[in-house]
């Protein structure tokens, strides 16, 4: 019974691949490379050291901005969710900045801070932090007042209510914010690097110049794999760290 949805999953993927192959053969590789061509390009790309070097540099630059976004966004989100005055001050900015896409601010940021680590870190931070803030704010606001009352009636002071109720209640949402934030951070760094033609973004630009779309698709597939494995890993960590939540969502 358990393998059944997996099998369906696999069948679904297979079906899409077959349709893609058929469409690709009709349109030609300049418009839509077939999965077979992309697979070949993928092997070729992965055996090229440039991709690994570019990917590695991009990822660690992204991680700095991403970790900063979590480090600042999470406490700020909790403060906004629990303290109305903080929310009143920050919320208007958060709702404005969250709609700003990386592509819109990269040119300005390049002029303001050049093309180094500061640029990539800032872009990733600015694009990611508001998603984290908004997600955590909502989660912090919706912490059950009844559970807070329970803790209060057992004589838990402010700190203990934070430690024993708010933090554990936020835990699953922290992990969700971290996952969503990661995807946004990755998109932001790719956008920024495509503008400055650096690292992985530069490779994407150059692949776009080739008439065949296969190398470009191969690079995109690599990005997808990075994103999927990172979020899978984070989900696994989340389940490990909050078994109560994992077991509750699994039972549903």
């Amino acid at each position: 019974m358990k393998s059944h949805p997996r099998l369906l999953n696999l069948l679904g993927i297979l079906l899409v691949l077959v349709l893609w192959q058929m469409a690709g053969q009709r349109l030609g590789d300049a418009l839509l490379a077939t999965p077979v061509q992309v697979g070949r390009a993928l092997v070729e790309t992965l055996s090229d050291g440039l991709v690994w070097a570019g990917l590695w540099r991009m990822m660690w630059q992204m991680m700095i901005g991403y970790l900063l976004a979590l480090g600042i966004g999470v406490p700020l989100g909790i403060a906004m969710g629990r303290i109305p005055s903080v929310d009143a001050v920050v919320k208007p900015w958060a709702s404005m900045f969250i709609v700003v896409s990386a592509a819109a601010i990269v040119p300005l940021f390049i002029i303001l801070m050049g093309r180094g680590l500061l640029l990539s870190t800032s872009i990733v931070f600015v694009v990611t932090v508001w998603y984290v803030v908004i997600a955590i704010t909502e989660a912090a606001r919706s912490v059950s007042p009844r559970l807070l009352n329970v803790a209060h009636s057992f004589a838990a002071d402010d700190f203990k209510r934070f430690r024993y109720v708010i933090l554990p209640a936020l835990h699953p949402y922290l992990m969700i914010a971290a996952r969503v934030g990661f995807v946004h951070a990755l998109r932001a760094i790719v956008t920024a690097e495509m503008f400055i033609g650096a690292d992985y973004g530069g490779l994407l630009n150059n692949a776009g110049l080739d008439l065949s779309t296969a190398p470009l698709f191969a690079l995109i597939v690599i990005l997808m794999m990075v994103s999927i494995s990172a979020t899978k890993l984070m989900r696994w960590i989340a389940d490990y760290a909050a078994p109560w939540y994992a077991s509750r969502t699994r039972d549903r």
Partner: peptide, 25 residues
């Protein structure tokens, strides 16, 4: 205090819920 809907902490096992008051103390 015993609350109307039990209001247990979902992130604590049954045993840890019972121990909550002592932990606060």
């Amino acid at each position: 205090m015993v609350f109307q809907g039990a209001d247990l902490f979902p992130w604590r096992t049954a045993l840890e819920n019972v121990a909550f008051g002592l932990e606060v103390m």
